[in-house]
């Protein structure tokens, strides 16, 4: 059974008289444990695809099924709960809360799932340990290197044990050395059985995935095993 399924999904942006078809009648399916890399030219709709698939943005038309359940028409509150429980997100710009410790940043999703403080701290510590930052729990983002910040962001994405992890160019803002570290981390997560969808520009990073999707003008132009 598919974990996540997009059926004839379109996402249109209306700017003045012009309609931009960021996603154009796109269908897609992913099974548990898969690692999918998404590639395509700038503006081809990769980020939009990720946002719609991860419940951050609503599609203009089409349906989305998560674990067999139609979640297309969920209201904002239920979508928030869904993102909180089922989805982990890693952004290109890390998106950590400024002046807030690594530990608090990682614990943030748990705050919204209603865990008690002791449990939040315990889980967040575990996750930081898992990404190799157990000695940086008190550091604020500006006291961490780019690679370390992205590892904090990954720990945050993992902390609620989500079904799928979405990553939008997670190495895009990093030098090649820290990029490689992050790459290794994703590889490890995949080996542990995590389901991952990752947008990337780099061929060599895409290679660690088992499946590669190419987007063009909001459509999937190729979808192959590698």
């Amino acid at each position: 059974m598919s974990l996540l399924k997009l059926k004839n999904v379109s996402k249109h942006y209306q700017i003045g008289d012009i309609t931009i078809k960021a996603l154009d009648d796109l269908s897609f399916e992913i099974k548990k444990g898969e690692f999918v890399a998404v590639m395509g030219q700038s503006g081809s709709g990769k980020s939009t695809f990720l946002q719609v698939a991860s419940m951050l943005a609503e599609p203009s038309s089409g349906s989305i099924f998560l674990k067999g359940k139609n979640v297309t028409n969920f209201d904002e509150k239920n979508r928030a709960h869904l993102r909180n429980k089922e989805i982990g997100f890693v952004f290109q710009q890390f998106n950590l809360l400024a002046k807030t410790s690594a530990l608090d940043n990682v614990a943030l999703p748990l705050l919204y799932s209603g865990d008690c403080e002791a449990l939040r701290i315990k889980k967040a510590k575990e996750m930081l340990d898992r990404v190799g930052l157990s000695d940086r729990t008190k550091n604020a983002p500006n006291q961490l290197s780019g690679g370390q910040q992205q590892r904090v962001a990954i720990a945050r994405a993992l902390v609620n044990n989500p079904s799928i992890i979405f990553a939008d160019e997670p190495t895009g803002n990093l030098d090649s050395k820290s990029g490689a570290e992050i790459q290794k981390l994703f590889k490890k997560l995949h080996q542990e059985g995590k389901t991952i969808i990752m947008v990337t520009h780099e061929k060599y990073i895409a290679k660690m995935a088992k499946r590669l999707i190419n987007l063009k003008d909001g459509k999937i132009v190729s979808d192959k095993k590698i």
Partner: peptide, 16 residues
Amino acid sequence: TREIGLRKALGATPDV
């Protein structure tokens, strides 16, 4: 807005 967007992405409902 960035912070609000992030909090929402991580599961904060509009009410919260």
